[in-house]
Computed example of a mutant assay.
Amino acid sequence: MTVKALYDYEFPSADRAEVFGDDQLVYVHWRGNPLFCSAACFRVPKTMTFAAFVTSTVHGWAASDPDFDPDSVTEWRLFDAPLSGGQDKSLADLGIGHKALLSFAA
């Protein structure tokens, strides 16, 4: 639903990319898990490798589900496209930008 302001609204977004410097916001969604019905948002460095992101950030968050098994994480997607690339590449190198949505199945 759109909202029409009654005046000129000229305030920059508080979560725009330039506010975060060398970091960025990345959303992560565990598809099909009823405990996590929506994506979680994490502030991480753009230069962080995908493997480090998964082990240090995603696994810690997902472990709050007692059924989580880190070895069962599969089918990573960036928005709606399959995520392809090396685990040793940075988030930026994989095309994971500010406010990107990653999802996985487990």
Rank of each mutant, 00 (worst) to 15 (best):
L35T: 14
G97S: 08
Q87L: 13
S90L: 10
F36I: 11
V28C: 05
H29S: 11
W76V: 02
P45F: 11
C37N: 14
S103W: 05
H98G: 02
F42Y: 07
G60C: 11
A106T: 04
A81W: 11
S103Y: 05
L102I: 08
K89I: 06
H59P: 03
A92R: 15
K99H: 12
S72V: 09
D8M: 14
D23C: 08
V58N: 01
R31N: 10
D93I: 01
L101P: 01
P45K: 14
K89P: 01
T2M: 08
T49E: 00
S84E: 12
A5S: 15
R16N: 12
D88I: 06
G95T: 00
T47P: 07
I96A: 01
Y7K: 09
V54M: 09
P34S: 02
Y9C: 14
P66M: 12
P45H: 13
H98K: 05
S38L: 05
P70E: 03
S13F: 04
S13G: 11
L25C: 10
G97P: 01
G85F: 06
P12G: 10
P82F: 05
A40D: 01
R16K: 12
D8P: 13
R31G: 05
C37Y: 11
D15F: 09
E18Y: 00
D93Y: 12
M48P: 06
D8E: 15
A92H: 14
A62V: 12
S13M: 04
S38W: 04
D67G: 12
Q24N: 10
A106P: 06
V3F: 07
F79E: 15
L102Q: 07
V26F: 03
A51W: 03
A100F: 02
F36C: 00
W61N: 08
S84K: 04
G86L: 06
Y27A: 15
R16Y: 06
V54C: 08
G85N: 02
F20P: 01
L6Y: 08
V3H: 07
L78R: 15
A106M: 00
G97D: 07
W30K: 04
Y7R: 10
K4P: 01
S56A: 13
V3Y: 08
A105F: 07
R16G: 09
R31C: 09
V26H: 01
S103A: 13
E10C: 15
D71A: 14
A62C: 09
L25K: 13
S64H: 14
E18C: 03
Y27S: 14
S84A: 10
D67P: 01
D67S: 14
D65I: 13
D80S: 10
A92P: 12
F104I: 02
A51C: 10
F50D: 03
